[in-house]
């Protein structure tokens, strides 16, 4: 009898074992062991040894840093934030349109169009943007022919191009969670809102928007985090003043093989994102969202 109960109790653990073990060993432990790598000193010739060199963080981000990593991090947060804002501003109306304005039988096809671009590798798509927006490309050629742009005007190599690329690449990841939440809203809520509030606009800000904040939050999670760390867009679309923390991590790991530096940069990025998202959740995660938005 006891054996049987024990067996019953162990069922969830048995089921969860492999999956959680895999994530713990190959995701969680690496995430933490990277902290120990960041505290090592050495070079690729002599190897790296753990010396608890906490000073590296001050060295990389302090005022006297040889390479302005703090600038690269700040720039990444700024670009990522701008891109996230754009995806919300553009993605919300799209999700709203799909959830409320589209007849049922057209929802699936129209929603498929939103994710259709994901069928093509994002590297190819980003590369093609560079190809299209480049000095030789059709857009600038037309703009110049119509005298809408001077010979000096260019789109690539600018902060705008990088932010646009980041927003473009993560756009579907903002639309889908917002849509998923809007779909769940009970339409009777709107009737109640229509009875309570004078204008549809007030009704929207008092009911729909607050109800969709979970969707916006998971959209932000998906979009902001990967935009800030992205090394691709600034490489393919950016210029000499768009170097971001993601590129710095990649370069110091793969090119200069400064494992300690790369790990420290990566740990700081993780920490910065964690703090920002935690603050966001604390700030907007209260029930009084109506008063904040």
């Amino acid at each position: 009898m006891r054996l049987r109960r024990w067996r019953r109790m162990s069922v969830p653990y048995a089921l969860a074992l492999l999956g959680s073990a895999w994530m713990i060993v190959l995701f969680l432990i690496p995430l933490i062991s990277q902290l120990s790598v960041s505290l090592m000193t050495g070079d690729p010739e002599q190897g790296y040894n753990l010396t608890w060199n906490f000073g590296i963080y001050a060295e990389l981000f302090g005022p006297g840093a040889a390479v302005p990593y703090a600038l690269f991090l700040g720039r990444a947060l700024l670009f990522g934030g701008a891109a996230t804002l754009i995806t919300i501003l553009v993605g919300y109306p799209v999700a709203y349109f799909l959830a409320f304005r589209v007849p049922r039988r057209w929802k699936t096809p129209l929603l498929s169009l939103v994710v259709m671009s994901l069928l093509v590798s994002f590297i190819i798509r980003t590369y093609m943007w560079g190809f299209i927006l480049g000095g030789h490309g059709p857009i600038l050629t037309w703009l110049r022919a119509l005298h809408l742009a001077g010979p000096d005007f260019h789109i690539l190599d600018t902060a705008g191009a990088v932010i646009g690329g980041l927003a473009y690449n993560s756009f579907p990841y903002m639309v889908l969670p917002i849509y998923a939440v809007l779909e769940r809203i009970d339409p009777r809520t709107f009737e109640a809102a229509a009875d309570l509030y004078a204008s549809p606009r007030v009704g929207f800000f008092r009911t729909t928007l607050p109800l969709s904040r979970a969707g916006i939050f998971s959209g932000i999670l998906l979009v902001f985090i990967d935009s800030v760390g992205d090394p691709v867009n600034s490489q393919l679309l950016g210029g000499k003043t768009t170097y971001m923390i993601g590129q710095a991590i990649q370069d110091s790991y793969l090119i200069q093989q400064q494992y300690n530096v790369a790990s420290a940069l990566s740990a700081v990025l993780m920490l910065a994102l964690g703090v920002i998202l935690f603050a966001y959740a604390r700030f907007f995660g209260t029930e009084n969202i109506e008063d904040l938005v």
Partner: peptide, 18 residues
């Protein structure tokens, strides 16, 4: 806990090329 576990699992150095 995971930190302690990973400290056990991982070595404290990365060999160099020399």
């Amino acid at each position: 806990g995971a930190a302690a576990l990973s400290a056990l699992l991982t070595a404290c150095s990365i060999p160099g090329t020399n």
